[in-house]
Design a protein around this nucleic acid. Structure first.
Ligand code: FES
Ligand code: FES
Lengths: 144, 144
DNA sequence: TGTAAAGAGGACAATTTTGTCCGAATTAAA
DNA sequence: TTTAATTCGGACAAAATTGTCCTCTTTACA
């Protein structure tokens, strides 16, 4: 469904948000440990999230990654997925036609667009704050 | 969403079904032309579909691929996807946790399982015959 | 029985994705 | 001002996916 990079990016963002709510910065080492991902690769993904203005990085001693507290409830999963995997998952044809076009649809189009819409709804209606709070309450987990 | 191999496998199956309904066998060359896929790679995928008893192959002169007419309406998209991509798309966690487990869910679990169920429903309720007939009626297309 | 038309299968190659490493730049604090 | 802790960026490496090619086997038919 999502690329590994995207999965790591989402989980990292949630973990950073969780910590930013308590004014703690976190680094790649702690993040990759908490989300069970390779550290160096995770660091690369964090760079991408920084470039896309989803997380902030503070260099130097006592640095790390954080998310502006006021932004945590407005950053949607869709923003993260878009930054890393692009928008093909929303807009692309399920059978890989060059473009999904209702006027010349693939055989799966009618049914597939429902799945895509459900996914789009999920991603566009879910913000980082709610996900972070679920973790905090022990109702969900970032690794198993 | 699906791998290229799976996309080609689905489209090839539909095209073979379409022809089998009219008692024509087709080969990799014609198939790859009709579904706009690389010929040799498509041939590899056809082998996999044969091994999984989804299509039959007849070797030798006048050979080619076909699907038993009586099977066309009982072969579901799910069978093809399963044969090529496995069942991760139905059962796997959206955030890549080793297993999707409602007792220790990832933060996306509650919403993601709806998307997955919608997809599962699509794949398990769609048979090759209906897809092939849509093509035949000019209501859908295998390339653009 | 010979030949041409097919699929099967293995080796290989290209590309993309995933992952690692290291030096440079930045910053806080001693 | 030095040092240690940190992110950044580029080069590199490994693995997975996608794609190609060639030979072998099978089969229909002249
Ligand atoms: S054309 Fe394939 S999903 Fe719309
Ligand atoms: S645990 Fe992630 S989708 Fe169920």
């Amino acid at each position: 469904m999502f690329s590994k990079a995207c999965e790591y990016g989402i989980k990292a963002s949630i973990f950073i948000a969780l910590n930013s709510l308590e004014h703690r910065r976190v680094g790649p080492k702690e993040i990759s440990k908490e989300i069970n991902s390779p550290e160096a690769f995770t660091a690369k993904i964090l760079q991408a999230l920084v470039r896309n203005n989803i997380v902030n990085s503070i260099k130097g001693a006592h640095g790390g990654f954080e998310i502006d507290k006021k932004d945590i409830k407005t950053i949607m999963l869709a923003d993260i997925v878009n930054a890393i995997d692009g928008d093909n998952i929303y807009k692309g044809c399920g059978l890989g036609l060059q473009q999904c076009n209702a006027d010349k649809p693939c055989p799966m189009h009618e049914k597939f667009k429902l799945v895509r819409a459900e996914l789009k709804n999920l991603l566009e209606s879910t913000d980082l704050e709610s996900l972070a709070l679920d973790i905090k309450l022990g109702e969900s987990f970032l690794k198993n």
